[in-house]
Design a protein around this nucleic acid. Structure first.
Lengths: 255, 255
DNA sequence: CACGAGGACTCGTGTACACAAGTGGAATCG
DNA sequence: CGATTCCACTTGTGTACACGAGTCCTCGTG
């Protein structure tokens, strides 16, 4: 956090130089996560620039996911949510009848909770019905929930299950019992063959940013899991994750 | 692209309303990828706002990864690179002696090429040597390359291999021959056991954005693969990918 | 025809100012 | 003492203006 000056001879724009100074402080942990950054007016005073330029410098850090602003309070170094590992390999997925998420959390000694947002019949988007092998517009069972790790929302998941599998079973309940919905499906004789997972990353929509309490400039991981049992797709699960909170982990046996 | 007006009674800021209009046009494909967006001055004229406000609206789209600006030319709807699937499952990875990347590309009928940037001895970062089970600062073989799909750089990968495995073998050459470096390792009697892959997403550094020709506001996928053969880690591969270009695909057998 | 100079357009960066609105502590009032 | 008001501070949104620099087309000259 040494006193730094703008180099007027530099080709680099002034607002970028200011952002570089702050970024260096953040990356060296001289400005730790959660700490307050200089206010706009103090940057104006320290660097002799206009407020517009000071704001531009700070907004660079927001785009980089390093800082956030809070109205009326100030600018802060972004606080990273607790990092978690999602063990998606086939051995961890169904350990002792617990969901993979539970196993992951216990292995990492994290406090976590699940909020069920909605369970009931509903329409699935076309890309979901297509994965389920159903005609567009078919009603399915929708299970929407939010996962919190150490009080912080980190994951937002929606499962879509064909009604002929879910109807009249505990899958329609908020809490489907031990082993989760996969356990209930196995109770009904379904034999799981594989889980296909597709992963992409993108910037969140405003809705997603609100649901996950994400600051601007932070990407989300998007995971779509397709569960295949007894020769058919029995569930599609669409998950949006705070990318700062997750490292997905896959272990792939050779041959 | 219907003529739209600002709602002065709305709580939503003017620049956000303008951004919403443009976003709707982009998402409905009325403004297709690569097409030019209204210039700042035409937004000023059409909406009766200042240039600062017009720019603010456009910069929202940049943060969302929907638009880019080109100095002296204008603002454009971001052109998505061709989407590719990385089949990381154990069956596709080593098909007929071809690298997974080649198999993926041929399956998707994409033109692709590889630029070798550096092959030679070098230092590995501490997090890499730790994965390799080597003391910090140990020299290793570094293989750095850039993958282009349809002329567009999409992936930037660096492999780190212990010298006692690589030295004096074709692994030290730019082109290690059929089956790539894994093939040469098998030639020397190494038996592959598994590949561990860790995936995260974040905003690119400026270097990465430059190497991948990424516009601002577009996140990258970060994949670290650890290859285990004959009881030891024989390679760590660190890959940065344009997240708009990739969907990672994993097929996990049940039990 | 080839080349170069202009000029009109674009975005990039910077100034100065104004007012709205959220936050938090100090002062004041009952 | 407790509640409310007020004020100083913060960021959010908007205006108007200036100049630099990249792009691209046109026009004029040799």
């Amino acid at each position: 956090m040494a006193l730094r000056r703008i180099d007027p001879a530099s080709d680099r724009a002034v607002y970028r130089q200011i952002a570089d100074h702050l970024r260096a402080d953040i990356e060296s942990h001289e400005r730790p996560p959660g700490s307050q950054l200089p206010s706009e007016s103090s940057l104006v005073a320290d660097y002799g620039v206009s407020r517009v330029t000071a704001r531009r410098a700070l907004s660079v850090l927001v785009t980089d996911g390093l800082a956030i602003s809070e109205h009326g309070k100030g600018w802060f170094v972004r606080r990273r949510p607790p990092v978690k590992r999602l063990s998606s390999d086939r051995f961890a997925r169904r350990h002792e009848g617990k969901a993979a998420f539970t196993v992951d959390m216990e292995a990492n000694e994290r406090k976590f909770s699940v909020e069920v947002i909605y369970v009931g019949q509903g329409d699935a988007p076309p890309e979901i019905t297509s994965r389920l092998g159903l005609p567009p517009g078919t009603a399915v069972l929708v299970r929407r929930r939010r996962y919190l790790v150490e009080g912080q929302p980190t994951e937002f998941a929606t499962s879509y299950i064909p009604l002929d599998i879910a109807a009249g079973t505990p899958i329609e309940q908020e809490n489907p019992g031990p082993g989760g919905i996969y356990g209930r499906m196995e109770d009904h004789g379904l034999v799981f063959e594989r889980y296909d997972e597709e992963i992409s990353a993108r910037m969140p929509t405003e809705d997603e940013a609100r649901h996950l309490s994400l600051p601007a400039g932070s990407p989300v991981l998007h995971l779509v899991r397709t569960a295949v049992a007894s020769g058919r797709v029995v569930e599609v699960c669409d998950t949006i994750m705070d990318s700062a909170a997750f490292v997905l982990f896959y272990s792939l046996p050779a041959r």
